[in-house]
Structure formats: structure tokens, C-alpha cells
């Protein structure tokens, strides 16, 4: 029996009167990949913000490797090994693309993992950019990040997560706004990350590509978990289809 790497129980969060996250629980084993789907406004982003510490829960508990990280400051959670990307990928505009990566590469966590050494950070940054699909010999890594097209920004965002060498990678709508060919180039990378034993949590709208990567899926609606299981099984459930088709959901509660 493998211990879960992350265990979330009864997480609740309200903003004003709306329950953005309502009693959500799940757990993941190391190396598993989870997809979180649901209609717009169903609480996917709030759930990610809760796990990464950017929003403090009203109730519930998050255990990471047995450590209670509920309500911990976000930078501390990162340093324990949970990295996240943002849906709106805003780079550091005035820096060149590879300089953008220097910040995560020289972060406390990355430094500790390398044994306190800085090393050749520029080279490490370029190497990482190559991994997510930038071409080393093109001008792109040396350009100002503010001028990057959207697809590249998304990949830069992914590289920022990977630079932290995390145990859990949370990706918030990584595929949105990427072209088919760009997605196709990222999917093998994500599969490789998974093989390396990292745990993935992905919020996505692009289901076809998502299903290639994930082992397990959670469907959210109105902040509540309405289904959980293997992707193919879950998608045929009535509640899930009706949530996606927009009709009213009977939660049976």
C-alpha cells in the first residue's frame, strides 16, 4: 500500500455568499496524474488556489507527505514541493525570456536541491527552455518576455514550474490558447514528467489531450465534487453530461 502524497479532506471556501469550494475531498498517490474538469465558475481555480496556499480555506485539511499544509503561506508550500502555474501567464515583462527563469532557478528550494550552489544559472535556464520546446539557437530565449506570443508564454509558465523541481506540479489550463501543434509538442513532455515520478494535477478544458495524460479525473460543479474516477467511466455519468450540457444538476443532497 503506497501512502498518498497529497490528501485533501472536506475543503470549503466561500466568497461572500457563494461557496466556491464545497466539501471537496480526494487523494493522490505519487506519480499519479489527476485531471480536474468542470464548467466555468465551478471552482476549479479556487481549488488550485487553496492547495497552493494563495487562498486560505474556511474548513478542511490538506496533507502533503503527511505534513499539514492547510493555510500555510504559499511560498512555504512551494518550498515543500508543490509548484503551480497560472491560468493568465504573465511573464516578468522587462526581462529576457531566459532571465525569467533565473528567478525560479535561484529560488530557495531549487538552491537547496542543488546543494546550496548557484552554478551556471544562465546555462541551466537555457537548457530548461529547450526542454519545454524553445529553440536554443533562435533569438527567442534572449528576447524580452513581454514580446512573446501566447503559446510560448504558456510553455515559459510550464518551465517556471519545472525549474522548482517539484514533487507535485499543478497546471492551471496549460493548453488553453495553445495551437494543436503546440499542444502536441507539450504532451510528450508531460508524459515524461509523469514517468519521472512527479505527481500532476491539471485543470483543463481540452479533454481529448487531457485524457492522454491523466489516470484519474474529478468533475466539479458549483464548487462540489460531482464525480471521480477513471476518465472514460466518469464522462458517461448522467450528472457529468448534464453539468456540461448546462441543465440543472440534482446533487441529491
Amino acid at each position: 500500500m503506497i501512502e498518498p502524497i497529497i490528501k485533501i479532506s472536506n475543503l470549503c471556501k466561500s466568497f461572500g455568499g457563494t461557496k466556491a469550494t464545497n466539501d471537496v475531498s480526494f487523494e493522490l498517490k505519487p506519480g499519479e496524474a489527476l485531471g480536474i474538469i468542470g464548467p466555468n465558475g465551478s471552482g476549479k481555480s479556487t481549488l488550485i488556489n487553496l492547495i497552493s496556499g494563495f487562498v486560505k480555506p474556511d474548513k478542511g485539511q490538506i496533507l502533503f507527505k503527511g505534513i499539514n499544509i492547510t493555510g500555510m503561506a504559499p511560498h512555504k508550500i512551494v518550498n515543500l514541493g508543490i509548484a503551480r502555474s497560472f491560468q493568465m501567464s504573465r511573464p516578468f515583462y522587462n526581462m529576457s525570456v531566459f532571465k525569467n527563469l533565473i528567478i525560479p532557478i535561484s529560488s530557495p528550494r531549487a538552491r537547496k536541491l542543488r546543494g546550496g550552489k548557484y552554478g551556471d544559472l544562465d546555462e541551466a535556464a537555457i537548457h530548461l527552455l529547450e526542454e519545454v520546446g524553445f529553440e536554443r539557437d533562435s533569438q527567442v530565449p534572449y528576447k524580452e518576455a513581454g514580446a512573446l506570443p501566447h503559446g510560448y508564454l504558456k510553455r515559459l509558465e510550464l518551465a517556471r514550474c519545472l525549474a522548482l523541481e517539484p514533487d507535485i506540479v499543478i497546471l492551471d489550463e496549460l493548453f488553453s490558447g495553445m495551437s494543436m501543434s503546440e499542444i502536441a509538442s507539450v504532451v510528450p513532455l508531460l508524459e515524461r514528467i509523469k514517468k519521472e515520478g512527479k505527481t500532476l494535477i491539471m485543470v483543463e478544458h481540452r479533454l481529448t489531450e487531457l485524457f492522454k495524460i491523466i489516470d484519474k479525473i474529478i468533475v466539479l460543479n458549483f464548487g462540489m465534487k460531482i464525480a471521480e474516477g477513471l476518465p472514460r467511466d466518469v464522462m458517461t455519468q448522467d450528472e457529468v453530461t448534464s453539468a456540461y450540457l448546462g441543465s440543472e444538476v440534482k446533487t441529491g443532497a
Binding site: 511560498h75 512551494v78 503551480r84 502555474s85 497560472f86 516578468f92 535561484s106 531549487a110 517556471r160
Partner: peptide, 24 residues
């Protein structure tokens, strides 16, 4: 310098700097 980049990062996008594990 690399240290100063963190300052600039905070100016440009503080959330991304937190997400890199810095206590801003």
C-alpha cells in the same frame, strides 16, 4: 544581478515570484 532580478520580478508579477517559493 540574480538577487536584483527577484526585486524586478516582484515589480512585474509578484504572484509568480511567490509561486517560485520566495517570501516576498
Amino acid at each position: 544581478s540574480n538577487y536584483g532580478l527577484v526585486f524586478q520580478g516582484i515589480r512585474d508579477n509578484d504572484r509568480a515570484v511567490i509561486a517560485a517559493g520566495y517570501n516576498i
